[in-house]
Amino acid sequence: MRIDISKVFDNENYLIAKLVQSDHHAFEYIFNMYYPRICIYALQFTTENAQAEDIAKEAFIRIWKAKTVFKSIEHLKNTLYQSARQIATNYQVANQRSINRELIYQMNQEQHEEHAMHNIIYTEVMSELYNAIQKLPEQAKNVIISTYLEGKSNQEVAQEMSLSLQTVKNYKLRGIKQLRQLLSSEIYILLIATNFFLEKN
């Protein structure tokens, strides 16, 4: 038998119980797990990376201070998304008063008329993709990033990494296979509660 002591918070009931007690270790666990994702979400409301991070931080501070009794992690996560959106909207109002008003207004029109739920789906998809890529073994990860994300050819990647063309192909195939496993629906669950945002829109 093996016990992972750092997984003490992986038990949802325990995590929720600790959050109710305002246990800051439990909250740190939540922060580590969801901060990057809330940043991605916030980035859809702003053009500045730093501002996206500020929005995400504020969202976490807000839910900590509100001392909401969360029923589930899903509930907590949705509250995070909701807070981030409200904070982002406030930022936007402030932004629109600035000189970039015209530009930002246009972007908002184009990008953010979409359904609020779409921004969450986008965030979840992108975050899961990132997490899955991060879990790949080093070489396979580099090949996948270069070929898929950066659009390089196998030949180019082979030269850059000083590998044979065949080795690159092998890494790529293995990487894709592993990605499929990592992203397979059995182990991957999108924690989106449908009802929360639906009420609002």
């Binding site: 800051h24 909250f27 740190e28 922060f31 580590n32 901060y35 990057p36 940043c39 991605i40 980035l43 990376n49 996206a52 991070e53 995400a56 931080k57 976490f60 501070i61 900590w64 201070k65 992108m126 975050s127 993709l129 990132y130 890529i133 990033i145 898929y148 994300l149 950066e150 659009g151």
Partner: peptide
Amino acid sequence: PLQQKQVYAFLNKIDTSKAWLEIQTDLEI
């Protein structure tokens, strides 16, 4: 792929532990 690449670059740059430290005073913990 461009979006995916941008997100990837952004997430790579995010320093979660630093961010956690930065909000300590606001969380009052």
